[in-house]
């Protein structure tokens, strides 16, 4: 009996080994296939970007040429970029965009932080309703808001001003900022605050010594995100400003009668700050967007 069982063991193990080898091969194949798909998608995203970047960072002759090349094969030059930046309204547009985005960032963060704290720390009657309305507001179309707000701003005499546009952008970013900051606060266990209070802190001290240092990176990320949203926003900016256009509004306005060099450089120039900022806050991406699903 014992001999028989030994033989059987050997037999089975060989079969298992073959199966194992087959599985491994298949796994390797799967892995290679996944890589291929991933790289294809990455190319689909990066390819056009690289082309646009090449167009923005070359001479205007290279932009006009056909068929067009990409960067190592065409001369590198800041000529196109310089041409774009020297075009009418671009420098003021950049300044306006930065002002609007900065005000939006500050206002939105200042207003959203207490609300985010309240929704993550207190269980109060009306909390769910508040969160739900924030979500509803988050999903509302900008288009719907921009026109009436423009009319209101005209009647208040604060139309066509970077400040009123910042007010609008704050209204647009506020819901997202509240949700994101709420999730940042929620990631700090309340027990930490309690521990600080047991060890001699007042609630305010506990907030300052424990909660604040822990949430600051997350809030900074959310603020950057707010900045990017405002920097990118074009519809409301086009409706609410006439003389004091932001960069996207200016580019949109000039789009139909401008050269390709202008358009390519403009598109690239608008993208770059966002890409840099997004890189810094990539760790928080899921905090930002994952929130929408909850």
């Amino acid at each position: 009996m014992s001999v028989q069982s030994e033989a059987m063991t050997v037999q089975v193990s060989e079969e298992v080994l073959a199966l194992h080898r087959r599985m491994q091969r298949r796994r390797k194949l799967n892995r290679g296939f996944t890589y291929l798909v991933g790289i294809l998608i990455a190319l689909w995203i990066l390819g056009p970007l690289y082309f646009l970047g090449s167009m923005a960072l070359t001479t205007q002759e290279a932009v006009r040429a056909y068929p067009k090349g990409v960067l190592p094969f065409i001369p590198f030059s800041l000529d196109t970029m310089r041409f774009f930046l020297n075009s009418a309204g671009i420098v003021p547009g950049v300044i306006n965009s930065v002002i609007v985005a900065a005000i939006t960032l500050v206002l939105s963060t200042l207003i959203a932080a207490p609300a985010g704290y309240a929704t993550s720390r207190f269980l109060f009657p009306g909390r769910d309703f508040f969160r739900l309305s924030i979500l509803a507001v988050r999903a509302f179309p900008i288009v719907v808001l921009a026109v009436p707000l423009a009319v209101v701003f005209i009647s208040l005499g604060i139309y066509d001003s970077v400040y009123s546009l910042a007010l609008m952008h704050t209204a647009l970013t506020l819901p997202t900022t509240i949700l994101v900051i709420g999730s940042v606060f929620a990631s700090i266990p309340y027990e930490l605050e309690e521990a600080a209070m047991v060890f001699g802190c007042t609630p305010v001290q506990a907030f300052r010594h424990i909660v604040l240092p822990l949430v600051l990176p997350g809030i900074a990320a959310s603020a950057i995100f707010t900045f990017v949203m405002s920097w990118n926003e074009v519809f409301a900016a086009s409706i609410l400003t006439v003389q004091n256009r932001t960069l996207p509004a200016q580019v949109l306005f000039a789009l139909s009668n401008s050269s390709e060099a202008y358009q390519f450089a403009g598109g690239f120039f608008m993208m770059v700050p966002s890409l840099i900022f997004m890189f810094f806050i990539r760790r928080y991406l899921f905090n930002m967007w994952g929130q929408i699903t909850k």
Partner: peptide, 20 residues
């Protein structure tokens, strides 16, 4: 009284060590 005036100390279930 608030906790800080009770002259107590405490060990929490999750330890509540300040991570920063």
């Amino acid at each position: 009284l608030p906790p800080r005036e009770r002259n107590i100390s405490m060990v929490f279930q999750s330890y509540a060590i300040f991570p920063h």
